[in-house]
Computed example of a mutant assay.
Amino acid sequence: MAEVPESEVFNHLYRTVRAGDEPTLSAPFGDVVLDDADTPLLLVSADIGCTPMVAMLEHLAATGATRPAWALHADRSPAEHALRTDTDHTLGELPAARAQFWYEQDAVGEPGARPGLMDLTDLDLPADVYLCGSLPFMRAARTQLLKAGVPACHIRYEVFGPEVCLAYVED
């Protein structure tokens, strides 16, 4: 028997949607909305948390934005990095954008990749930060950002799961 993912939404759809059904869907939305400022931008994600970040990059490309942007992403391996092709393509359309990826496995030989977990200590960090990923990942990234001098009010985030405030779940 195939392993069932631990996902509330997936499992609900698996139990209730049948071939031929036409589910009603909405556009993705959440608490994090990219502002159109000209300040430098840091998009920090892990796993499927890259989804809103790629949408933000696409918005920047579509509007001809010239603001400096870093797309930083952590994943298990290059093979599991969702939307990697979309990210690379969109970054190619943004003259002031750069990317850095971290992979726990198989990082060697992968362009723009570092091995292991995301480490923000040696980056020149811009002003506006957007985080998206699991709660443990965002706790670690937020802690590194605060230690690097990024003000808490410049860090916006999207939690995949029940509404939780990162500031109150610090270890």
Rank of each mutant, 00 (worst) to 15 (best):
R156L: 01
T39D: 13
V159D: 02
Y168N: 14
Y103C: 02
H59R: 14
A46K: 02
A99I: 02
M56E: 02
S134T: 14
G112S: 08
G92P: 02
A152F: 14
E3S: 10
T66C: 05
P151T: 09
T121E: 11
A140N: 07
T85D: 07
A62M: 03
S77H: 01
D122I: 05
A141W: 07
Q144I: 07
T39L: 07
L60G: 00
W102D: 04
A27L: 09
S45L: 07
A79M: 06
P126E: 08
P23W: 14
A46T: 08
L91N: 01
T90N: 01
E158C: 06
I48H: 08
C165R: 15
T143Q: 13
P136K: 06
A97R: 00
K147V: 11
E3W: 03
D21E: 11
A140T: 15
L34Q: 06
P68C: 06
R15I: 02
R76G: 06
D38F: 03
G116R: 12
D36W: 03
T87G: 00
P52I: 04
R84G: 00
L117P: 02
E163I: 06
V108A: 15
D124Q: 14
T143H: 13
L41D: 02
D36P: 02
H89G: 00
W70V: 01
C165L: 08
Q144V: 05
C165M: 10
P126W: 05
L13F: 12
L43A: 05
H81I: 03
T24F: 13
E170R: 15
L131V: 04
C165W: 08
T87N: 00
L123T: 13
P78A: 07
H154K: 10
G30Y: 13
